[in-house]
């Protein structure tokens, strides 16, 4: 009987670790990373994973082992103890140090991604001069690029639904706006998520390092159509980006005849 229950408890760490090891093979791991800070975030995830994984294995195996060992029919009385001050000190101090280490290890990356003081200041796009405004509304993403005047909110703005085109290897800053409720900007491949608050303009930056097409997901419940609220992040080379912008502009100011609409 106790063999069976011990096995059950033991299977938790064994299968638990096994699924994490095999997850990548089952395509159950991170999607590819394409942003400049994504690797750091993945690294921090791994760091925590190894630390908690170690604790997980040790505690779960100890649990199974104790259950196995002390559920045997042994003669005489068990140990009589109310605890050990020394042990308590040890297992308070060691986790405390480890946890503080984890906390302080995070700070640099967090500051890099989210602090406005760390936003790109040198490049073409800055907090004051974003590449675009991304408008969220139930249940749509719309991108508003500045027109020739480089300023958003004027009559020559270009608007495009669904698809957000950005240049590769460039620090991109954009503004998040919402028309109605709270939405959230999430691109899994960028490891980037930021809620869109109505009434606020929230600047966000990233630097995509690989061309491609990535899903833009709404990550905050925004109503019945939350699952429909998808968008597309298209990362292209600078030359292609200029071309795409020219195309968007041509389409915006076209007389509709060429495209038939």
């Amino acid at each position: 009987m106790r063999y069976f229950f011990t096995l059950m408890l033991l299977l938790v760490p064994i299968l638990g670790v096994w699924t994490f090891v095999e997850a990548d093979r089952w395509q159950l791991w991170f999607p590819q990373n394409v942003s400049s800070f994504g690797a750091e975030i993945d690294g921090l995830f791994d760091l925590i994973m190894y630390m908690v994984g170690f604790t997980f294995i040790v505690t779960e195996v100890a649990l199974a082992w104790f259950v196995f060992k002390y559920s045997a029919n042994r003669p005489g009385k068990g140990a009589f103890t109310h605890g050990s001050h020394k042990l308590e000190m040890i297992w308070t101090a060691i986790p405390a140090v480890a946890l503080l280490f984890i906390a302080f290890a995070q700070m640099e990356t967090w500051a890099k991604v989210k602090f406005e003081s760390n936003f790109p200041k040198e490049g073409k796009y800055t907090k004051e001069r974003p590449i675009a405004e991304l408008w969220a509304s139930q249940f749509d993403w719309r991108v508003r690029y500045p027109g020739d005047d480089g300023v958003i909110g004027t009559v020559d703005d270009l608007e495009r639904s669904y698809e957000f085109v950005v240049p590769v290897n460039t620090d991109v800053v954009f503004h998040l706006r919402s028309r109605d409720v709270i939405h959230s900007f999430f691109v899994p491949e960028f490891r980037l998520k930021q809620d869109v608050l109505p009434g606020h303009t929230i600047p966000v930056w990233f630097r995509a390092e690989k061309e491609g097409i990535y899903d833009l997901v709404c990550a905050e419940l925004c109503g019945w159509g939350h699952y429909k609220m998808s968008g597309r992040m298209t990362v292209v080379s600078q030359a292609d980006f200029d071309k795409r912008m020219a195309d968007i502009k041509a389409e915006w100011f076209s007389n509709g005849k060429e495209q038939g609409q």
Binding site: I41, L44, F45, I48, L63, I102, A103, Q106, M107, K193
Partner: peptide
């Protein structure tokens, strides 16, 4: 133990950027 340990990911701000609401 499992639930407690996985909470540390959520507490870590940069990691939470990715795993929040997943």
């Amino acid at each position: 133990i499992i639930g407690g340990l996985s909470g540390i990911w959520m507490a870590a701000t940069p990691v939470d950027i990715y795993i929040h609401d997943t």
